[in-house]
Amino acid sequence: MYVCPYARGLPTRVNTCNAATLSYRGGLVDLVYTGLIKAIRLIVARDPEILEITFLTLRVSGLATLISLAIGIPLGLYLAVAQFRFRKVVVGAVNTGMGLPPTVAGLWVSILLWRNGPLGSLGLMYTPTAMVIAQAVIASPIVTGFTMASVQQLNPKLRLQIMALGASPVQFWWLIIKECRFGLLAAVMAGLGSVISEVGASMAVGGNVRHYTRVLTTAIVMEISKGNFDVAIALSFILMALSYGITFILTVVQQSRRRL
């Protein structure tokens, strides 16, 4: 009998819900219920491997989101106001990038980081750093696109008005950012949401190495492939709770100044 590595010490009844027992146990509702109970127990029991995977997920996706914000916000602000010859081409590329499949991003980052690739000498393949790079590649166009849209949504004359009020360039951009902060926080949420939930790129460049590059999404995929649906469901609940918790905090920040 397979024993889930994340469920050491849990009662056998909870630990043996796999594909073979699915029909016997009474179907989907029972499976989801078992998964939820298992998720709660794993969290309450502070399973070291689950904690490790969860913290790595947070670390990798958090860092990738920060990098994507550092790239995407200035680029989005620039593209929103600048006029240059190939602007439409660049904007089109950004919009295409917003729908970039994570697997494709993973493939290209793999090619770059592979032993014989241009950045192979850095030895980053199958490391958390590689996963951060791949996820930043996925999130950056999303943050850029959302930023651009939120600035373009502002009345164009507002830019002139801010300049007319005597704003220096730094003050100008600060006021623009403040004015479109709802859109920018949406950009943060969309960027984080896109990377915390992706699996293709993390699998391609991280390899799902236990105790090293395994994150929640890659662990879920692995458990599904093994037929351990209840464990996969338990991990998915943890992932969703994590995602909801972060989004909730950002939403509170976003709505905090919306006084009537």
Partner: peptide, 15 residues
Amino acid sequence: RREMAVVFQEPLLLD
């Protein structure tokens, strides 16, 4: 610019 002020057709107030 800091010696001048402009009022447009729309009030363009900030949040």
